[in-house]
């Protein structure tokens, strides 16, 4: 092996971050946002008194949690064009871009995990808070939106963030769709220049630094919240 080649990293670092990391972070952000919104709805469905809603949501969450993310990625990659065609009434599968497909996949998948977190958060709010909301004349959505969810969300921020760090790492799996996320970009350079050692070690380092820093932030936040309560 001919020594560690820092030069290949230096040459490609702009490309890696401009193309790859931008994709990775955008995907993480959008999927986290979509996943938390959809996950919260799933949690509300699971806790609702309408049996059918609860059963549908439970089934969805359990299904997503029992199959590997990679299989879900493959599923949605092929399923989304069909759903698109069905929704628009087209006779051919609709081609959606790699980015849109990834956002949909990760939103749908992570929602199952976020929903478990939000469910625990909602259940941690005393029943009396809901009663007090109703007693003041607020309706279900107002009570949820103004009283229960803000508290549940705040209590769960550290865990939601931890799950988002996992999501950030999980997005590397779009590699199997030959998408140029951060790892995909590193892998392209690695293969083009025959510099696998340098590129994969560098990728590992970057993922580590970002995830680790975020987890330190989460720990700080947890201590801060612990003091406030």
């Amino acid at each position: 092996m001919g020594g560690f080649d820092f030069d290949v990293i230096e040459r490609s670092v702009g490309y890696l971050f401009r193309e790859g990391m931008t994709f990775t972070l955008t995907l993480t952000g959008m999927a986290a946002l979509g996943g938390i919104v959809f996950g919260t709805l799933l949690a509300m469905m699971r806790l609702s008194s309408f049996r059918v809603l609860a059963i549908v949501a439970t089934g969805y969450v359990n299904l997503m949690r029992s199959i590997p993310l990679l299989l879900v990625i493959f599923w949605f990659y092929f399923l989304v064009p069909y759903i698109g065609a069905w929704m628009t009434g087209s006779s051919q599968p609709i081609q959606v871009g790699a980015f849109a497909s990834s956002v949909i996949t990760f939103t749908m998948f992570e929602a199952a995990y976020y929903s478990e977190i939000m469910r625990a958060g909602i259940q941690s709010i005393p029943r009396g808070q809901v009663s007090a909301g109703y007693a003041l004349g607020l309706d279900y959505w107002q009570t949820m939106g103004r009283i229960v969810l803000p508290q549940a969300f705040r209590n769960m921020i550290p865990i939601l963030l931890t799950q988002t760090i996992i999501l950030f790492q999980d997005t590397s799996l779009v590699y199997v769709l030959s998408i140029t996320d951060f790892l995909g970009a590193a892998s392209k350079i690695a293969q083009r220049d025959g510099r696998l050692v340098e590129m994969y070690l560098f990728a590992a380092l970057v993922y580590f630094v970002i995830s680790f820093s975020l987890s330190v932030v989460v720990k700080r936040l947890q201590q801060k919240i612990a003091i406030v309560r």
Binding site: P126, G128, Q129, S131, A132, Y134, A135, L136, G137, L138, D139, R146, I147, P150, Q151, R154
Partner: peptide, 20 residues
């Protein structure tokens, strides 16, 4: 019900102020 409840004041054992 919301309209009715808005006209009936209620005070709870555990206060149930909204902590946030």
């Amino acid at each position: 019900l919301p309209k009715l409840r808005a006209r009936v004041g209620m005070v709870f054992q555990h206060f149930e102020l909204f902590p946030h």
